[in-house]
Design a protein around this nucleic acid. Structure first.
Lengths: 339, 339
DNA sequence: ATTGTAATCCAAAACGTTTTGGCTGTCAAG
DNA sequence: CTTGACAGCCAAAACGTTTTGGATTACAAT
């Protein structure tokens, strides 16, 4: 089918060895020979077979990324931005990107094993780490190169980049307290997710710092989706004594929460304050625009990718544990507590 | 490093041949031998080397998908849902998914060539086809298996699934006309994109059918993003005689357009009507919820994936050209023309 | 004793590449 | 005339797998 070295070598009465060496610019090939090889390769449209190169070189030049998807209608701007970062940076570094989509659980674990044990990729990027992350455990155990967006509670060392969600939430809640809010609800998610746990810590710390007794009724657990935020906010707002502020674990939830509030005739930013996390592009275009904590997802993805490649190449990392402070962006979805 | 057939065979005093055949259940292996092989493979944790299998079998069992990204902050729910569909379906069919991200243009074309000519994938999925799509032309020329979400104007035959944007927009605009709208603006995009051209055709047809003279000032070209919709809507609304309805090429633009309207004090759904296309999850949670045309992105992705695999396997396709009618979902962003 | 036939097993080739460790011939220096 | 150096080329091995086309043995049937 496709053109191989053998064909070129046969055509020119050369050995396969000489042909590769000519193509790769070794200095033990006569100038004339090199030119003949190049020109024939050109006209025949020779492109080396990637699979053969991989087998021979013992590496795939491929990075793996398993997206944790939730339900069929999976749609999260966070991931598309992150993916764009990985894709662009991987390409820049000469790596392919192999993507799987799997809901967390047994099938996800199997996907990781396929990638690692079948030697399909040279390294992996993890995202949405969990406090006791089996993926991290597994990869450490197998000594397989990986980097993660997020920390874990495991007593192991690995390379990560993470947002300081605790500091971010502390700052955010202090800002709300400063506006006079006391009944600040938190639309949380599965606290096994590390970033959820961190943000909750920050939430609690800020309340405690201001002598506000944490009300367990104001902490509610939901999905990290609009629907999750919509439903959870609905339940909170229908209480006898509803909260005056809704702190949501991410922007998607916040958008859902805003809708729930608006359906109940509340003016977001006046009657009730709502906040998110991520600063997805939609946050700015929400109505009203959403107060949120920005984390530079694209840069994080890019950085992780570069770190992983250095790991694969056996180079040393000077910045193996990066913690970035998120940036509080105040927009119109928050305001002083209503009289 | 990893366990190979050779090691297993050495350990058991068997040939490599017998070991593979034992593992794959050929009937010329003694039952006892088969068991010894299996149990040793198990304890050593043998997993075949994917690269070697690929080289030997002459196929990669990998599908390629190049996401057309626009700018670094790429974030489009349409693509994350489509990607989830591809990922899940590919996995189900035993295929890996190789993803690249590239802005349309020369680099994109180079990415396709790398994938095809380097024999990195067995087939490709195209999305956002263009009227004179160089990708389609190239792949047809090389006789490489591919499927596309979208049609082209090229005189070539290939397998696709597409939404009938023309019919959808016709229905949508007729609905708006029925509400009394006459000055219906269209926030369009690059008409070289086939789906843009189709939707525009539907828009014009509906206007013509009701004797409304198309006003070139009401047709404006923008990016398919919130920002694009926001800016274009802003320009339209600041005119002396602004439109009463904004028909947007997709939901993201519509969300941006809504914000532009709201910033000018207009109540969307009353003072002005806004529509989108796609029915991304955010459309439902917008404020007000967005009237839009739903297309089953997940199903389309799944279907395309299955079609591609059949193509790769040389099986025949009975449904090589699928046109799906989008579904008009009327929400609160549209209403009667204001008095 | 020969033939036939199962039942087991395996050597070698092949996929396409890269690298190792040469080999051959020419020419200048001794 | 020999030696050494150098330029230019290449055979073979290797990466790990699967498949082809036997080979070997045992045993039953002739």
């Amino acid at each position: 089918m496709a053109v191989t070295l053998k064909e070129i070598s046969r055509e020119l009465n050369l050995s396969v060895t000489t042909v590769t060496r000519a193509l790769y610019g070794y200095d033990d090939v006569a100038e004339g020979t090199r030119q003949r090889v190049w020109s024939l390769a050109e006209t025949l449209g020779y492109v080396p077979d990637t699979t053969a190169q991989r087998l021979r070189k013992g590496r795939t030049d491929t990075l793996g990324f398993v997206i944790p998807t939730f339900g069929p209608r999976f749609s999260d701007p966070f991931f598309s931005e992150f993916l764009a970062a990985l894709g662009n940076e991987a390409a820049r570094l000469g790596f392919d990107l192999l993507v799987s989509t799997r809901a967390p659980g047994a099938e996800e674990q199997a996907a990781y094993r396929r990638l690692v044990e079948g030697r399909r990729v040279d390294g992996l990027i993890l995202v949405r780490t969990r406090r006791h992350d089996e993926r991290v455990q597994y990869l450490i155990e197998r000594d397989f190169p990986f980097v993660a967006f997020g920390r874990t509670d495991l007593e192991v060392d690995y390379s990560y980049v993470d947002s300081d969600g605790e500091a971010g939430f502390r700052q955010l809640v202090e800002y709300l307290v400063g506006l006079g809010h006391q009944r600040i609800a938190c639309l949380s998610a599965d606290p096994e997710l590390t970033f959820v746990a961190h943000r909750l810590t920050g939430y609690r710390a800020a309340l405690a710092a201001h002598g506000i007794r944490p009300d367990p009724n104001l902490l509610i657990q939901a999905d990290l989706t609009q629907r999750g935020g919509y439903e959870a906010a609905g339940r909170l707002l229908d209480r006898a004594e509803p909260p005056t502020a809704l702190v949501c674990l991410n922007d998607l939830m916040a958008l859902g929460a805003m809708r729930a509030a608006q359906q109940r005739g509340l003016a977001v930013g006046h009657d009730i304050s709502v906040t998110g996390f991520d600063d997805i592009p939609l946050a700015e275009n929400a109505h009203p625009p959403l107060t949120t904590l920005e984390q530079p997802v694209y840069d994080i993805g890019k950085r992780l990718c570069a770190m992983l490649v250095r790991l694969i190449r056996g180079e040393s990392l000077d910045d193996a544990h990066v913690l970035l402070a998120p940036n509080l962006i105040i927009r119109e979805s928050t305001g002083p507590v209503p009289m």
